[in-house]
Design a binder for these strands. Structure first.
Length: 832
RNA sequence: GCCAGAGUGGCGGAAUAGGCAUACGCGGCGGUCUCAAAAACCGUUGAGGGUAACCUCAUGUGGGUUCAAUUCCCACCUCUGGCACCA
């Protein structure tokens, strides 16, 4: 007989059409079923998707379809993160208007999603570049502005020379632009910021609420926020009453301060320098500004500095402390001033050695006495206070508290908490983004655009190629406007909003995507959020997820939403790599799903993608291994074809399984029934728990293997066979939906399998009559015996010790101990 | 440097409230079908030894706890990711 492959092409197109017509995945607002919001991170429409991207959508689709079968009212929407640099750069490269290329990319990607059999409620589709969406992104900007959380200031900011725009701190990776790897430089620019630092504490604290987030994502966010407790100490400037505050986490080392360092950008530098030093200092400041961020913030970089020429006074002992500026002090952290304790800080130590500054030991090592001559590195371990006046003899851990208290009492310091987190730079000098809704009037100053005037539309006819200033500056119809307050001529803000803000709130918009009167419906949103399951790549651990949490908290404070965290559960899937590397066009290792789908169908690609390994881990793609998934699906197909032939031969119409099952005589059938129910249990647990689809699929394969070996059985076995087959099809449904629908129909059912409920298992069927127990001698498995399932420990012991083979193995030896592990093994400990 | 996570057959990976290591799949080998090949199907497959029953060795390395360790403890090595002059 010629083996025929199953006709996946016809099956897949048939069911894709059916699902869309039946609106299978369209959420029904009036449904009484419990809600389930299953959200996948929406993509940038910049290029065609590869199999690595597919993993995200396939996992999400499995979860959505599974929840559908579990009787939930599922919301699984999809949209497009369409604004921002990737879309704009692609547009520049292809020399097509971003609006056109974006639309084209969306069309292509949507087609791919459809081919994968991934379902969404397309009636809720949105794109962040549409005016009816970005109108509300602008509205959020205005709300933050109203609250004093959006401000403009002149500051040294990250500038990417290649992208010709400023970047947020979070977009600078290793001193390079996250997008194009160009070295980022510092520039002084007037830019818009969001005061995310005002939420630092809450963003950190509320991580504890996120019980179902991966631990590593929470750790990454906590590190990024970088809370540290310390003291801000006032150092008086010598010769006047001005005070220079300085943050430290080590007040216990205050007696060891031998110099002080200011960041080159520190505003006091210019003023404090005496006339004869000004030139030298100006040159140093210039030089360190030119250094890019990458080298300014790396340990390996040589520390350099210049003595300013003035002094400050140590508040605890009145010592005169020289003031320096150095490249290793950062303006953005603490107060931009560092009290230097070379004996107990490695950076200060290196700097002091280089410039011959004094070193003073104030924490003594209790193990091995430190001396100035032998000190080769800063001593940063714990120890005992020395040379610290009234605090001598205290363990330094205690001294931290004591000295902090002492400084507060004296009024020269206060406990403070600082964060590594900086305010979020939100303006971009690019075209493809939402215009910042601000107008500058020479009389009224900075005026927000009134809500009624939103959206501030992005003009279409613009030369959007990067030229170092905002492309919108070249569009007078856009820039020239009138002041909303006094109606006199005014100018619009020409920068656009960073794309990250657009993706900070899209999950709220999905509930009422066409609402023209408000960004989202508070009632609806409170009913549907937090998102039950968010699925996406770990690369967004900080940027997108931190920003979204921030915006949600702001909206909560403003009373627009009733929850403080947007995403209840988060799942971050691993990357799919090829030849050990991330798929990329430049490496030429991109696996396109199109060819594979044409050859094997979407179900095979889905099954392999899920089977490749645990979904939270990276996995290596192997084209050959796809065959395995393909072979398996064909086997399932054939099994059902054969079953149909067989059952028609016996003319079994009986659907009453229980009656048939009660007089089963064949042991193999009992075993199959047990396997069936074991598989239901296993698959359900794997899907409910950690999304371990790989082991769930392996379990189904085992069941199918057992059925194959049982082919050609007698008539009485048909109901058991039928139950097993139906189970296989139901359990496979979320993974391989097209084939499952088709087989479900072949088994005689009408309507979508996803409207049928997920199978439950029968505890009775799981029971076993006898089991195989491993017998160990001194911890090594030597034999196996078959015993009744309900056997007592005593009986099992007896049974084991009287067994001929065991007697042989223990002959001439003294049995010291017998260890019984119920249901698993017996270990006989012998001597000799 | 610091913080996570991970090291298991030729390969992807199973199994950790300690209890039969290598499930499932890929690849390999042998067979069936075929003039032949491919596909498909069936069997076999950790390494070494033995005619065989069986034996020995194997979960990154070295120790430890235990009747029993991939799983727990200590030290180290390697890889991946994040952070990295944050005072």
């Amino acid at each position: 007989m010629k083996q025929k492959n199953y006709p996946f092409r016809a099956i897949e197109s048939r069911w894709q059409k059916f699902w869309e017509e039946e609106k299978l995945m369209y959420m029904d607002e009036s449904s009484p079923k419990p809600k389930y919001y299953c959200l996948m991170m929406f993509p940038y429409p910049s290029a065609a998707l590869h199999v690595g991207h597919g993993r995200n959508y396939i996992i999400g689709d499995v979860v959505a379809r599974y929840k559908l079968m579990r009787g939930y009212n599922v919301l699984a929407p999809m949209g497009w993160d369409a604004f921002g640099l990737p879309a704009e750069n692609a547009a520049i490269r292809e020399n097509i208007h971003p609006a056109v290329s974006t639309r084209e990319h969306i069309r292509k990607m949507k087609e791919q999603l459809n081919q994968w059999g991934v379902l969404y409620d397309w009636s809720r589709e949105l794109a962040t570049c549409e005016p009816d969406y970005y109108k509300w992104t602008q509205w959020i900007f205005l709300k933050l502005h109203e609250k004093g959380l959006a401000y403009k200031k002149l500051a040294p900011v990250n500038w990417c020379p290649s992208c010709s725009t400023t970047l947020a701190n979070e977009e600078v990776v290793d001193g390079k632009c996250e997008r194009c790897d160009t070295l980022v430089v510092q520039k002084d620019l007037e830019q818009w910021f969001f005061k995310i630092t005002a939420y630092a504490e809450r963003l950190l604290r509320d991580l504890e609420l996120l019980k179902d987030w991966p631990e590593r994502v929470k750790i990454m966010q906590a590190n990024w926020i970088g809370r540290s407790e310390g003291v801000e100490i006032d150092f008086r400037l010598e010769g006047n009453d001005e005070v220079l505050p300085c943050f430290t986490t080590r007040p216990d080392t205050i007696y060891g301060v031998t110099y002080m360092v200011l960041a080159p950008e520190h505003p006091l530098v210019e003023r404090l320098a005496p006339e004869e030093k000004k030139e030298e200092i100006r040159r140093f400041v210039e030089k360190s500004r030119k250094e890019n961020l990458a080298s300014r913030t790396h340990l390996e970089e040589e520390k350099e500095g210049v003595f300013i020429g003035s002094y400050v006074i140590n508040p605890v002992n009145g010592e005169r402390i020289p003031l320096w500026i150095a490249n290793y002090a950062l303006m953005g952290y603490g107060t931009g001033a560092v009290m230097a304790v070379p004996a107990h800080d490695q950076r200060d130590f290196e700097f002091a050695k280089k410039y011959n500054l004094p070193v003073k030991i104030v924490i003594q090592n209790p193990e091995k006495t430190l001396t100035l001559d032998s000190l080769e590195a800063a001593y940063v371990e714990e120890g005992v206070q020395v040379g610290s006046g009234p605090f001598d003899g205290l363990p330094n851990r205690e001294a931290i508290e004591k000295i902090a208290g002492y400084l507060e009492e004296k009024g020269v310091g206060r406990k403070r908490i600082t964060y590594r987190l900086r305010d979020w730079l939100i303006s971009r000098q690019r075209y493809w983004g939402a215009p910042i809704p601000i107008i500058y009037c020479s009389d009224c100053g900075t005026v927000p655009v009134p809500e009624d005037d939103l959206p501030v539309r992005l003009p279409e006819k613009v030369d959007f190629r990067p030229q170092g200033r905002s492309p919108l500056a070249g569009v007078p119809e856009f820039v020239d406007t009138s002041c909303p307050r006094c109606s006199r001529p005014a100018r619009r803000e020409m920068d656009t909003i960073a794309q990250w803000l657009c993706s900070c709130w899209y999950y709220l918009r999905y509930l009422s995507p066409r609402d023209e009167d408000r960004p989202f419906d508070t009632d609806l949103v409170n009913r549907w959020l937090p998102v039950d399951q968010y699925i996406g790549g770990v690369e967004h651990a900080i940027l997108h997820l931190l920003y979204s949490r921030f915006i949600t908290k702001v909206l909560y404070d403003l009373g627009y939403v009733g929850f403080q965290e947007p995403f209840q559960r988060l799942f971050t899937q691993g990357m799919i790599v090829k030849d050990g590397a991330k798929m990329s066009k430049s490496k030429g290792n991109v696996v396109s799903p199109d060819k594979l789908i044409a050859k094997y169908g979407a179900d095979t690609v889905r099954l392999y993608t899920l089977f490749i390994g645990p979904p939270e881990k990276d996995a290596e793609w192997d084209d050959r291994a796809v065959e395995g998934a393909w072979r398996f699906l064909n086997r399932v197909w054939r099994l059902i074809e054969e079953f149909k032939v067989q059952s028609s031969k016996f003319k079994v119409e009986d659907k009453n399984k229980d009656k048939k099952l009660s007089n089963l005589d064949s042991r193999r059938l009992t075993d199959l029934r047990r396997k069936t129910h074991q598989t239901i249990k296993k698959v359900t647990e794997d899907v409910e728990g950690k999304f371990h689809f790989n082991t769930a699929i392996a379990a189904i394969m085992e069941l199918v293997n057992e059925m194959s070996s049982l082919s050609g059985s007698e008539e009485s076995g048909l109901p058991v066979m039928r139950e097993a087959l139906e189970t296989v099809v139901l359990l496979l449904a979320p993974f391989v939906p097209h084939l499952s629908e088709e087989l479900w129909e072949k088994l005689g059912y009408q309507g979508s399998i996803f409207l049928h409920s997920w199978p439950g298992y029968d505890e009775e069927a799981l029971k076993i009559e006898e089991m195989i127990v491993a017998v160990q001698v001194n911890g090594k498995v030597r034999h196996r015996i078959t015993v009744a399932a309900g056997i007592s420990e005593e009986e099992l012991k007896k049974e084991t010790l009287t067994n001929d083979r065991i007697k042989e193995l223990t002959a001439g030896k003294e049995i010291k101990k017998v260890i019984i592990v119920p249901g698993k093994l017996v270990n006989i400990v012998v001597t000799g």
